[in-house]
Design a protein around this nucleic acid. Sequence first.
DNA 1: TAGGCCATCTGGTCCT
DNA 2: AGGACCAGATGGCCTA
Length: 209
Amino acid sequence: MDSDCLSSRSSSPEFDRESPQFLSGAMFQAHSVGQRLTTRGRVKAGETELTQENLQELRLKVNSRERQRMHDLNQAMDGLREVMPYSHGPSVRKLSKISTLILARNYIVMLSNSLEEMKRLVNDVYGSRRAPGRASSLPTRVQQLPPVMGTVPTSDYATYLSLSSSDICQPSAAAQHFLGLPCPCHICQYLPQPPPRTAAAVSLSRPRK
DNA sequence: TAGGCCATCTGGTCCT
DNA sequence: AGGACCAGATGGCCTA
């Protein structure tokens, strides 16, 4: 993933959890503070008497778990960044966590709106073609449309909906559509335009370091 | 240099 | 009881 390469710091740096080597700088300071707080000999925790060594060992264990938990969280965040638009350009720095979440939320809303719009349009197309007296409800398979436009080839939508290929644009036409050129097909004419790449990218990301 | 972002430690709370 | 989760504190790195 290129966003990892863009970052000056890895979200999940390599480290040896069992080694005290990773206790440097702030970490060592914080660790020392912890030591100072527990230098009064034996400490009682519940029914178990903990020596200073045991307490320190426990503290390291807990810290390690928490570190691992945060690394897992960061990995999930990286996974989210990977599927987000606007985050792969060479001039775009790795999205911050808050930006990633905000952008993801907006992206989901946009996709949901697109899906609803497409369902409505398909309903219109299907409804105008149905035979008189035929039930007007959409076939189940239409209601089970893939949630994200673009996750299946455009031609598959026609098969999916039992439409003729003339009802839905071909990949080349779709490409034209997304290049900003008009596409004459029923579907593309009413699909919402993809958002401009600049707005979110500029407002939600910083230039690469 | 201030501010943003981040990793880490830590203690408290909740859950199994 | 032990682990997961959370939020506050702290200090480092980077950019404007």
